[in-house]
Design a protein around this nucleic acid. Sequence first.
RNA 1: GGAGGGUUACCCGAGUGGCCAAAGGGGGCGGGCUGUAAACCCGCUGGCGUACGCCUACGAUGGUUCGAAUCCACCACCCUCCA
Length: 376
Amino acid sequence: MPLQYTLLQQCPDTLARRGRVHTEHGTIETPCFMPVGTSATVKAMSTPELEDLGAEIILGNTYHLYLRPGHEIVREAGGLHRFMNWKHPILTDSGGYQVFSLSERRKIREEGVEFRSHLDGSKHLLSPELSMEIQRALGSDIVMAFDECPAADQPKHYVAQSMERTTRWAKRCRDTELGSHQSLFGICQGSVFPDLRKEHAQAIVDVGFDGYAIGGLSVGEPNEQMYAMTELVTPLLPQDKPRYLMGVGTPHDLLEGIARGIDMFDCVMPTRQARTGWLFTRNGLVKMKHAEHKRSHIPLDEECDCHTCRNYSRAYLHHLFKEKEILGMRLHTIHNLHFYLTLMRRARQALEEGRFESFRKSYLRYPGPAETGRSS
RNA sequence: GGAGGGUUACCCGAGUGGCCAAAGGGGGCGGGCUGUAAACCCGCUGGCGUACGCCUACGAUGGUUCGAAUCCACCACCCUCCA
């Protein structure tokens, strides 16, 4: 049985919607944020900790798990859920993002993408069929179609042909058999070109998927364009299927995405930034590496009730960071994920209570790109 | 008492006549990060000045030289070995 989406409530002021995604590994309340666990781990977190934080679904990555440990080993272990001890839903990315992020190491052909492994330089051809095969072995609940994520600076003629190839790949993914509990999401590309975005949204809907993702954004384009493309595409997607904005984003981006009809988000931002010393609060970023925290014997965020803020001071977190202590990364990650997941929980509550629009405007007390007019 | 080695910027350390305000680390101080090649990457780090530059600096002092962190003399301190 593929996943089922239940639309619970629609925002009276925006395109936002409150819903629920049902999978065999459990239910996901939407809009939701999905912590990224590329290599079968949300870096620095154990799975019970993720449960405590309230994560309902996490990501894994096809490309990385294929290279190491190898999808056959994960299959042997009983699938990714058992391998990493996560009982709840998992979404796996297809490797399409690595076409972008590892662009110097690959060649795109109609058949697929030839990668030189970032680990040992060995050559691999990742095709739509292989991506499906790997994701079937991983046993994720939501499988992403194999796409090409073009960089933001690509010219229109390139984006157009790339997008058409992504459509052909989408069909090949659709035609590959998956596990009975697995659902397949298609990905809309088209970069920042409105006509291409519309055209591709229609093409992907025509192929027919269990859910729809908007990809190829947050890859360097100005923020307004990311928002504009999102609100252009979501109305073209079926109401009864979940929509996923891939790789987004900042706390403001999440609120703006929800307002434009997005149900699911993922981003490395809370976890990566945690490890590199940026902490999110409703009043803005706290850069824990800064010397100003050396003697700051107060919590990171007075109004936060996460484990980190309830138990440790800025001075201590700063010390751990400077010392490169592993606990610092863990405590930072706990806080940032708590912040993101709490943001989403409160957004859902606001939607239920019909006050999402005022929530969107007031929750974050520091200016985002929409307020400052900055372009990126 | 004798023989040898050493003293370079906040720390370690390279440099043995001009290309040296001085390599490289570390530390310090910043910047960055959006489907994770990320416990990572990039700057700056003697003073003043936007800059050409000027000043102060390679243990101390004196000297050789057009020119010295670099060569010489002497002094101080540290290390190793032999008595």
